[in-house]
Amino acid sequence: MAEKHVLDVAGRHITVTSPDKVFFSEREETKLDLVHYYLAVAEPLMRVVGGRPTLMQRFPHGAEGSSFFQKRVPESAPDWLETTIVSTPNGTTSRALVLADIAHVVWAVNLACLGFHVWPCLHDRPEVVDELRLDLDPQPGVEFGDVRVAAAELHRLLDELGIVGYPKTTGNRGLHVYVRLEPRWDAYQVRSAAVAVARELERRRPDVITSAWWKEERGRRVFVDFNQNAPHKTVFGAWSVRARPGAQVSTPLRWDEVETLHPDELTIASVPDRLAAEGDPWEPMAGHPQSLEPLLELNERDRAAGLMDAPWPPVYPKQPDEPPRVAPSRARKSAS
Rank of each mutant, 00 (worst) to 15 (best):
H232E: 14
L114Y: 09
L157Q: 08
A198Q: 06
R133A: 03
A196T: 12
L161P: 10
R218D: 05
R184P: 02
A243N: 12
A150L: 06
P140S: 15
W214Y: 15
D146Q: 12
L158T: 07
R205M: 14
I163M: 11
P126I: 00
N110P: 01
R220H: 12
P126S: 14
P167S: 07
V128H: 15
V109S: 07
G174K: 03
V149W: 11
V149F: 11
V235S: 11
L132I: 02
K233N: 06
V164D: 10
L157K: 00
V179N: 07
E153Q: 13
D135I: 09
G115D: 13
N229E: 12
S240D: 10
W239R: 06
P231G: 11
A112C: 13
E127D: 15
E143D: 13
W239K: 04
V197C: 10
Y188L: 09
V208S: 01
R221M: 04
G162P: 06
K233C: 03
E200K: 09
R199S: 04
H117K: 01
V179L: 10
G141H: 08
V177G: 07
L122W: 12
V128A: 15
W119D: 01
V179W: 03
V142E: 14
W214Q: 14
V197A: 09
E131I: 03
T234D: 05
G219Y: 07
P167E: 04
V147N: 09
V129Y: 11
E160S: 13
V235K: 02
A238P: 03
Y178D: 05
A108T: 08
L161V: 10
T210V: 09
E200R: 13
E153S: 14
A112R: 00
A198P: 01
V109Q: 02
L181V: 10
D207C: 07
P140T: 10
V147M: 05
F236I: 01
W239S: 06
D225W: 01
P120R: 12
E217N: 11
